[in-house]
Amino acid sequence: MTAAHSTVHGAEGHASPARLLRMNRMGLWLFFASDALVFALLLSARFYLDGLHTPPEVKQILGLVMTSILLLSSLTAYRAETAIEHGNIARGRSMLLLTAVMGSVFLAGVVMEWMLAEFSPGDGYGTAFFSMTGMHAGHVASGVLLLLMARRQASAGKFDGGGTRAWGASGIVMYWHFVDVVWVFFYPVLYLIH
């Protein structure tokens, strides 16, 4: 996820930093497109298996709270990115940490939801619910790890000066937003439709 170009091999010595940034960006977006398809398949499986049915036992308040936390964490992630891009590493570090904390709270919410669930993974809705939230939570968990890595890199001075040097942080924040976009679709499909 971090700068995928090699500084060791030096084979792309002829590419400018701006060119490398574009390459990294395109690679990351292609990855998003590719990953999005997995989520899209799970989402269509939900309709295929259980249509629009949502059992009344679904915890609506918990779902809304978790959704809000995740959306809010996108704001802090964004703030981290803009800060680092402008060379404001200190603020970037604290915002990355805050985002990771909110992500962890979201994960705790998922665990709680799984334990409270009054439907089994064996029926149509349960199959969709557990696999979709599970796949998404896996991405959130990896996102939290990546955010912490970005913070560590920020402390080590990797993003000093901002600009194109901020790509490592920027890419991770983009991943975080991507996971958020997935939830924008999963939330209504799992909780709201009926």
Binding site: A77, Y78, M174, H177, F178, D180, V181, V184
Partner: peptide, 11 residues
């Protein structure tokens, strides 16, 4: 919602 995140947050 997705469009706003893609456009403004993910640039």
């Amino acid at each position: 919602k997705a469009w706003y995140i893609l456009k403004d947050f993910m640039h």
